[in-house]
Every structure is written in C-alpha cells, then in structure tokens.
Design a protein around this nucleic acid. Structure first.
Lengths: 219, 219
DNA sequence: CAGACATTCAATGATACACTTGAATGATGT
DNA sequence: ACATCATTCAAGTGTATCATTGAATGTCTG
C-alpha cells in the first residue's frame, strides 16, 4: 500500500520532468515566457502543426506548468507562474554546467565575442539611469510590442546589418532577446563585434527582466 | 545553421529533464542523495535488476547528474553536486504546487498528523541546543550508518511499535528520513500521533540537512 | 596468468511518445 | 438555430525507451 503511494508520488514528479523533456515543449515554454498566446500563434512561432501544438500544450497543462483560459473563439495559454521560469533557468544551468556538448555549441555561437561575459541586468539598469547605452531588442516585432526594456530599439537579425552604419564604435551596445534559451542576442553580438562595435549580450531576456520586477514598456 | 544549433541546444536541455522523468531514476537519485553507492547496492535498495540499474545510472551520468569512480572491483556512483539536489527540490515544489493529485496522495500519508506542518531544520537545530528533543531517523540501518543527525535514534517503521512504550506523551519527537521524496517519516509521524504522542516531521531529510552545512554524525 | 567477481554491453519484446491526418467539439456571432 | 471558426479528439505510423536475458568486458586476487 505505502509502496503504491510512493510509486504514485514518484510518477507525479516524473510527469513534471517529462513535460520539460521534449524540445518542442521547451520552445513553447520559451514562447510563453514572452507573454500569453493562442494555440495558432504558438504554432506559427514554433513551426509545429496546430494539432501537435495543442497536444504539447495539454501535456504542459497536465504538468501544471501552463494555464489556459478562453478569450472569444480562441484559447489563450500562459505560463502559470515564475516558478516555472526558475525551473527552466535551473535546467539550463545544470545542462550547461554538466555537458561539454552545450559548452561547445555555445562557443560556436559566441565566436567573435570571445570570452566576453554577459552583462548583468543590474549593470544594465545602472547604465540606463546614466544614459549613454544603446539597447537592442533582437526579437520579432510582435513580441517586442507585448513588452520590452524601456528605451530598447527593436531590430531583427535580418535587418541588423542595415542598422550598422548608424552605430558608432564608441557607443555602448547591449543586445537581448527572449532569454537563455534564445540565441538571437548571441548572434547579434557576434555580428556587431565582427564590425568593430562595442556590443555585449544581456544576461537573460525579457522574461527574466520582468521577473526581476523591473519596468517593462509596451508599445 | 543557427536553427540546427538552437535545436541541438534544446535537445541537450531536454536530455537533462528526461533524465529525471523516470520514477526509477528519481529513486536512484534519492538513494544517491544519502551517499555514494555501488551498482549492486543501488539495485538492492531500489528493487531494480542490476543491468537495469546500470543502464539508468548511465543515463543519469550522461545528463551530468551523477559521477562514477572505480573502487576496487566495484564502481561507486555519487551525486555530482548540490545543484542536482536543488533541482529535485524545485521539481518537487512544482509537482506539489501544481498537481492536486500529489496533494491528495500526501494527505493520505499525513492522516493522523492533521494539518501539522513540518518542523524547519533551523527550528530543530535550535531545539537540539536546548536539549529535550527526541530525534528519530526512520531509515535502514546502513543509511543511518553513513550519516545521520547527531543524537538521532535509528528505528525502522517495522520496529517503531516496539519503541512506543519508551516514549512519553510529553516528549518532543521529531522524525526524518531520506528527504522530500521519502515517505517513511510521514508514516512514522502518523503512527506516533495515533498513539497520542507529540511527534512532528522534519522538513527535508538528511541530504538537505547536510546541504545546509550542518553537522552530520557517522556511526 | 588464470579465475572470480562486479559491471557493462547487446539483443529482444513490450510500452509509450511524437507527429500526421481527418473528424468532432464547442463557443461565437449573425 | 445555423454557420463559422479555433481548438481538441482519435486513429495510425514510426521512433525511442524500459525491463529482461545472456554474453562480454575489465579489474582484483590467488
């Protein structure tokens, strides 16, 4: 009897872990960390089919990581709370700490930004009050619209090259994107530095900035 | 290309989560949280076959959650670091926070200890210095021998009834076991309270006590 | 160096999961 | 009430995982 209880408990714990054990669901969670969205929107963003997206979302809901509510015809999913974000962060730390594989991948991403550490959010906040820092938000326009760091300029990776002439080598540039799972900012910094600009990556993305309780601009 | 990198990254993160998504591996991790052990010992403790245990352990090692080193003929596995413990704790919090299922199971375990909260480790430490607290370690003798809270008395669930006559209703009793995933202490407290004794469960088990940096006695 | 032992590897069958396709549900708005 | 739309369900297929069995590996001991 108590054996059964123990097994049932472990099964429940495993359920939560299993919910995060599929890359597709991690993508969905990352997307939901940007803000609530409907099924179709999530499917577009992640490139999954609608039915598949719905199925994964239900797995996440069963694990208690996301909640859903109806809004008109569509069902809006959103992250349940910040605990999920913390869990993802810890998962990332474990993976990067433990797996040489990840380090290798990240090194490839950071080529051109050799050994430059990410700027902490505290530091960025300080520099903002001092003025004289250019903040680049490397995310799709719709995600930028749902919330961004005050004063940030929205620019896609594709259009980044167009912006290069406007940036002076003396300018202090900080780039961010969706968060730790997102590689846009990595790539943007690599591009910028390749062109001799003084660019650094922000530690964490908008969800982390928001979770810190900092001000978020909407447009 | 960058799509591939992103996919590879997510795959690595998912690998770590997947490592914790099997009840058998959670059992192994809980066991390893008590202290290092060989494959055969782990197989005995968990009831898995040797080969199966070995296979799960390699999954955990690939995810970087455990390390192994050879000692004579046998291979000793141990938890890689406290980060794994923190991750498990967070997994537990998420599961218990989110799943009504878990709450129901835990309620079944705690019947008889109605609504009595677990005693914090800080509180226990304070009471120890004041003396006048009976600490029961509800784990197998060999795990007790590998480390236990100073002053604790080792008693199995089976033998607990034999100890009842020696305990006075005025005594302040605190029971602990392997940790949050373990239900021994829950059951012990239920039994004790059913007999009118003043028993409470410690929050966390020996691994958490040790991770706090507190003194651990060995036999 | 050979035997003994603990662990790991390899192959099998059973189960579960991811993704696709097509149909069913259920709320909305005319 | 009916048509419409987004979402969900259900069935099917291919792949991955788990547990078991028996063999192979690698390390100590005589």
């Amino acid at each position: 009897m108590s054996i059964d209880l123990k097994a049932a408990l472990l099964e429940e714990y495993a359920l939560v872990a299993r919910a995060m054990s599929a890359p597709a669901r991690l993508m969905l969670l990352e997307q939901l960390a940007q803000g609530p969205r409907g099924v179709e929107g999530l499917a577009d963003k992640t490139g999954l089919t609608i039915a598949n997206t719905s199925q994964h979302l239900q797995t996440l809901r069963r694990a208690g990581l996301v909640t859903s509510c109806r809004n008109g015809k569509s069902v809006i999913y959103s992250m349940r709370d910040d605990k999920t974000l913390v869990f993802m962060e810890l998962l990332r730390v474990l993976a990067e700490r433990n797996l040489a594989q990840v380090e290798k991948i990240l090194r490839q991403l950071s080529e051109g930004a050799n050994g430059l550490e990410a700027l902490s959010r505290d530091d960025l906040a300080a520099r903002i009050t001092q003025g004289a820092v250019t903040i680049l938000d490397i995310r799709p326009a719709d995600e930028f619209a749902m919330g961004h760091i005050p004063g940030a300029v929205n620019i896609s990776l594709q259009d980044l090259e167009l912006l290069l002439p406007d940036l002076s080598p003396e300018a202090d540039i900080v780039a961010y994107c969706r968060g730790p799972y997102c590689i846009y900012a990595h790539q943007a910094v690599a591009t910028l530095r390749k062109h001799g600009l003084n660019a650094r990556r922000l530690d964490g993305g908008l969800p982390e900035w928001r979770a810190d309780g900092r001000k978020v601009a909407t447009a």
